[in-house]
Simulated assay, not measured.
Amino acid sequence: MTERYKPNTTVACVIYSQGKFLLVEECIDGAVKFNQPAGHLEANESIINGCAREIVEETGLELTPQALVGIYQFRASANLAFVRYTFCIELTKQQHAKPRDNAITDTHWLSLAEIIALGSQLRSPLVVKSIEDFLQQADKNLLPQHTPLSLFNVDYF
C-alpha cells in the first residue's frame, strides 16, 4: 500500500492597489524571499479566516478577502507539496503595512514587472501565477471573473 498523499494546506492573498501588489519579505534559510501574505491553515480555522489571519500577522492590515483567485497545487520537492487557496483584495489606495510576525522583515508595494524581476527571490512560481490570474480575471471583458467567497461552505466552523 502506498503512503497517503498529505499536501500542506496554505492560504495566500493578492492585495492590489493603484497598479501595485503588496508583497512580504522574509528570510528563509538565510535567503531573502518575497511572497504574498500567506501561510498554513491552522486547526479549527476556516480557509477564509485563515487568510484574514495571515494578512494581519504578515502586514498588520485588518482586511477581509473579497474573492477567490484560484486553488493551486504545487510540489516544492519530492517530499513537500501544497494546496494553496489564493484570495484577493482590491484597495482604493495603498495602505502602510507593518508586519506583526517577526519572520516578516518588510513589506513592499511592487508592480508586476518589479515582481517578475525578483526572479529566484520569489518564494514560489505561484506568486507570479496568482497575480497573472488575478489580472486576467479583473479584466471585465474576460471570463471567468473572481470567484465569490460564497463558494466556501463555512457552516461547520
Rank of each mutant, 00 (worst) to 15 (best):
K6Y: 12
V11L: 03
A103E: 11
L149M: 06
K33P: 06
V56T: 11
E45I: 07
L41K: 07
Q36M: 15
D29Q: 12
Q66S: 09
N153F: 02
G70E: 06
T10M: 01
V56A: 13
E57R: 13
V24G: 10
R84A: 12
S111D: 04
I15V: 14
V14Q: 05
T64D: 07
I47E: 08
L135R: 10
A138M: 14
K129R: 15
E26V: 05
E26Y: 08
Y16F: 14
I48L: 03
H40V: 10
D29L: 10
A76L: 14
V11F: 01
G19T: 05
P144R: 05
M1V: 11
E58K: 14
N8F: 11
V32L: 15
L126V: 08
D155F: 03
F87S: 01
G30A: 04
G39T: 03
E58Y: 01
I131T: 03
F74C: 00
A31M: 13
F87V: 02
S120D: 15
Y5Q: 09
I116M: 03
Y156E: 13
T2K: 14
Y16E: 13
K98W: 05
A12P: 04
Y16R: 07
D155V: 03
L149N: 01
T107K: 03
Q36E: 11
L80M: 08
G39A: 03
Q121W: 00
Q66M: 10
V11I: 04
H96I: 15
I47Q: 05
A97K: 08
R100M: 15
L22K: 04
Q136S: 14
C88Q: 12
K6F: 12
R53I: 06
L68P: 01
I55W: 08
L118R: 11
I47V: 12
G39K: 07
G70L: 09
E90P: 00
H146N: 10
N102H: 11
A117Y: 02
G19Y: 05
F157T: 09
R53V: 03
T59G: 09
H108C: 08
A81M: 07
Y5F: 15
S120G: 06
P7T: 00
T2N: 13
Q73D: 10
L149K: 02
A117S: 12
Y156H: 13
E54C: 08
K6I: 12
G50F: 01
E58G: 06
E45S: 07
G39V: 03
E58L: 03
F21K: 01
I28K: 13
A97H: 09
E57V: 04
T107M: 08
L68N: 08
N79G: 14
L68H: 07
L110H: 04
P37S: 06
V128M: 05
R123Q: 13
F74L: 09
E114V: 02
P125L: 06
G19L: 05
Q95K: 15
E54Y: 01
N35T: 07
P148H: 05
L112V: 10
